[in-house]
Amino acid sequence: MTKTTKKTEEAVKIEDAASAASKVTTKVAEGTREFVRRSAATAKERTDDFYETTNKFNSGLESALTRVAGGYVSILGGIAAATHENVTHALTTVEKLANAESVSEAVRIQSDYVRESTSANIGRARDAAEIVRDMAGESVNMVRENAMKAWPYGQKAA
């Protein structure tokens, strides 16, 4: 009977150890589940923040691109207007040349035409270059500002 008692005592010890191990495993599993819950919540929060900041950036980018498209249309309109003015000026000069009574008058009309056309076209080119420069600068600044608003990481707190 002593052998049976020893076996029974050993069996009880094994059951107690298994029960204790089961409780430890359950506690570890609960801790693990809590860690996963917190990690998932943090990941969801960061994903929501990223989505929101991406939308802000896209909105700003849309504004910048709309401005660029508007500027492009403005430049095309300016080119059309300049072409019309140049053609009108040339045709007016042709009419004046047709009415010229001497070669010296025709030369003066022609040189006035060249001087006026050159001056007007240089002025138009300068204006167009200024528009392009301003538009590009504004667009770059808009994109930069919107990117900084969308992703404020690395900025010092105010």
Rank of each mutant, 00 (worst) to 15 (best):
R124V: 15
I109F: 02
V94T: 11
K27Y: 07
R115Y: 03
K3C: 01
S102I: 00
L76A: 01
Y153K: 12
A43E: 07
T88E: 11
W151G: 01
Y51H: 12
V73E: 01
E45V: 11
K23R: 06
P152H: 04
E45D: 12
I75H: 01
D127K: 13
E138N: 07
V28H: 04
I122S: 10
A157C: 06
S59E: 15
H84M: 06
A129W: 11
A81P: 01
F35Q: 08
N146R: 09
T53S: 15
R115S: 05
E85R: 09
G60L: 02
E145S: 14
T92V: 09
E10T: 06
T32E: 04
A17I: 03
K56A: 14
H84F: 06
S117D: 04
Y113W: 09
K23A: 13
E9Y: 01
K7H: 11
V73K: 07
V140Q: 13
E105M: 06
A41K: 07
V12D: 02
V68F: 01
L65N: 10
K13S: 08
L97S: 01
R108S: 05
I75C: 03
Y51E: 11
A90L: 07
A106E: 02
S19K: 03
K7L: 10
V87Q: 00
S74G: 12
H89Q: 08
I122W: 07
T5V: 04
Y51R: 15
V140H: 05
R46N: 15
A18H: 05
T53W: 15
V12L: 08
E95C: 07
N121V: 14
Y72K: 03
K149Q: 09
K6P: 00
I79P: 02
A29M: 09
V107G: 05
T93A: 05
D48H: 14
S111E: 11
N86W: 00
Q110T: 09
E95Y: 02
W151C: 05
E52R: 13
S102C: 02
D127N: 14
V107E: 13
A129Q: 13
K3Y: 08
V36Y: 09
D134A: 10
L65M: 06
D48G: 10
I109N: 01
E15K: 03
V140D: 12
F50A: 15
L91G: 04
T2D: 02
E34V: 05
T118P: 00
A136M: 10
H84G: 05
E62Y: 05
A29Q: 03
K7Y: 08
T66Y: 02
L61E: 08
H89D: 03
T83N: 10
S111C: 06
K56I: 14
D49W: 12
V24K: 07
H84P: 02
I14W: 09
E116F: 12
A81R: 07
A64M: 01
V143H: 05
H89N: 05
T26Q: 12
A150C: 07
S74M: 06
S102V: 03
E45T: 14
I14P: 00
A106M: 00
F57K: 09
S139G: 12
I131Y: 04
I75K: 00
L91Q: 03
